[in-house]
Amino acid sequence: MLPAILASGLAMGSIYAMMGVVYNVMFSASRVMSFTTGQLGMLGGVLGAAFVGILGLPAIVGLVLTLACCALVGIVTEVVAVRPVLDKLDQHLYVLSTLALALMIQQFVAIEWSTEPQPFPQLIGFGGGGPTDEKFWLPVLACAVTVVGLELLFRHTLVGRAFLAISEDNYAARALGLPERRLRMASYALAGMIGGLAGFASGQLLLAFFANGPYLNFYGFVPVALGGLGNNRGAIISGLLLGLVQQAAHFTFGGVFTSVAVFAVFIVALLAAPQGLFGQPKQRRV
């Protein structure tokens, strides 16, 4: 019983954590919370099922193509829904623009793909359905790859440091000659790839379903709030905790009470630490 809950909790937690990272990567570059986050995860599953399941491409080729398509969607998000409203952040117009783009993506998939969930193919054939099945461990592996990849990128590459620079202070970064717009586009492409990877790795769990986007948007936001806005480590830890608490609540309470239990924990945590469990209180110059 415990292995099943742990496997399921870690898998779901990894997906939520990666969605949290997608929010953070886009937010760091633009100060925008994009509603297209969940759709990137949804697209990862749908495109993966299309490339590997329907077209019969090898899994690795399907993954590369999925990541490329999701990166493109990330760039389109930046160009279409973020860039035009950056000057008007006070009005929070990005809420409307990113929500509109997210709905367009969802409806397009519903029309062109299906309104019913479609199967996602087995990628390795490992585990036989129990707690050791690949469908539980591929999301965990994808999450680990994301963590390591981001650490290497941000700490050991010049581009990664440039990302950090614009997330810290984009005016100063621009003054130093950093190409802010290109870096922002690259951030959105990176976010698209992370979202696509999350969707691809969790395809067997979530199925290739056009309505997964809002679900991932919703549960992906919780790690961001709990971990502190812009804090990737906080998002990863909070996402994993969320998954484990959720699965334990499914087992303990079941049904609609699961969401009540999960969000009761969420509210209590935010009351105790309003800046997020891993966030720093905002410094205010006086």
Partner: peptide
């Protein structure tokens, strides 16, 4: 007797409750 959300990705916990 219980309900499960249509989009819930994994129902192992619910099924374990039924089995137990």
């Amino acid at each position: 007797a219980g309900t499960i959300e249509q989009t819930q990705p994994d129902v192992t916990s619910d099924m374990l409750r039924m089995k137990n």
